[in-house]
Simulated assay, not measured.
Amino acid sequence: MTTPQYVYGVTRKGAALPDGVTGLDDRPVALVADGECAALVSDLPVGRALGERPDLEAHQRVLGAMVHAGIVVVPLRFGAAMEGREAVERELLAANSDRFVHMLDRLEGRVELRLRGTYIQDAVLREIMQAEPEIAELSKRLREVPADAADAVYYDRIRLGELIAGAMEQRRETDAQLLLEGAAPAAEAVIPRPPAREEDVVDASFLVPVERRAEFDAAVEELSRAHADRVRIRVVGPLPPYDFVPEA
């Protein structure tokens, strides 16, 4: 009977798996090879539905173990299941051999690091009040309005919020560019994301050669010192290099 396989990612044929790495349902992870590549797989019981949080954690655990062991891997998105090992060999590896080899060569000796910067909001609001007289004056006037008259200045409060948001956006564009330019020299590629929250300054992934990791970290430390009074900066990683794997 063919046993369905869950696939975590693709590495090079003959790669040594980290000791004790387990996948979904704590099942052992194995390599299924074809040509120059091999898929990281574990058995998936027939009828086993995917999507629970432990499943996602197991997926990330396997890929994280590879990254932290320094083994190049092309991560697959969560939820990749195939009919059996023969299907993994034929439909995944053989059918995409050149593509996987190219991606493994591209990622070899490199790590994905994610740079996140978040405003210290009180500090940035003080900057805005000092630099924008219209905003400062409107804010002062609204603070002096008695509580029982709040409804009368409803639209003024909306206007104040819009002005502050606009001023924040202008600062974000400038600050994000400074942070990206400060960290980028040690990286081969950078992928910025749109800010998800009002306080976010920058959220970007960097593909950094291993031999330049110390240079990247030093650049981020310098940025942290230079902006410590207004931006909190941190680096997450190394991570599975999802951001530098082209979509099929």
Rank of each mutant, 00 (worst) to 15 (best):
T2P: 15
T3Y: 12
Q5T: 04
Y6C: 06
V7R: 11
Y8A: 05
G9I: 06
V10P: 12
T11E: 11
G14T: 08
A16E: 13
P18F: 00
G20S: 06
G23T: 02
D26V: 07
L31Q: 13
L31F: 09
V32H: 13
D34W: 15
E36D: 14
E36F: 06
S42K: 08
L44A: 00
P45V: 01
L56I: 08
A58V: 05
A58N: 06
A58G: 14
H59I: 03
V62L: 08
H68F: 01
H68S: 07
H68G: 03
I71V: 12
V72A: 09
V73I: 11
P75S: 02
P75M: 02
R85S: 12
E86L: 07
V88S: 08
E91K: 09
A94F: 07
H102C: 13
H102R: 15
D105H: 13
L107I: 04
R110S: 02
E112H: 06
E112A: 00
Y119A: 01
D122T: 05
A123R: 06
V124A: 03
M129F: 15
M129P: 10
E132A: 14
P133M: 14
E134A: 15
I135P: 13
A136R: 15
E137P: 14
E137Q: 15
S139R: 15
A149F: 14
A149I: 03
A150F: 10
Y155S: 04
R157F: 07
G161H: 02
E162I: 00
E162Y: 05
A167E: 13
M168W: 03
E169M: 10
E169D: 13
E169A: 12
Q170H: 13
Q170L: 15
R172E: 02
E173T: 11
A176H: 07
A176V: 01
Q177C: 02
Q177A: 09
L178E: 15
E181Y: 00
E181L: 07
P185C: 00
A186W: 04
F206T: 05
L207F: 00
V208H: 07
V208K: 06
V210P: 09
E211G: 08
R212K: 10
R212C: 08
F216Q: 04
A218E: 08
V220Q: 04
E221L: 01
E221A: 00
L223K: 11
L223E: 13
S224R: 11
S224L: 00
A226N: 13
A226S: 14
V231W: 10
R232Y: 01
G237V: 03
P238L: 02
P240G: 00
P240I: 01
D243M: 05
D243E: 10
V245A: 00
V245H: 01
E247Y: 13
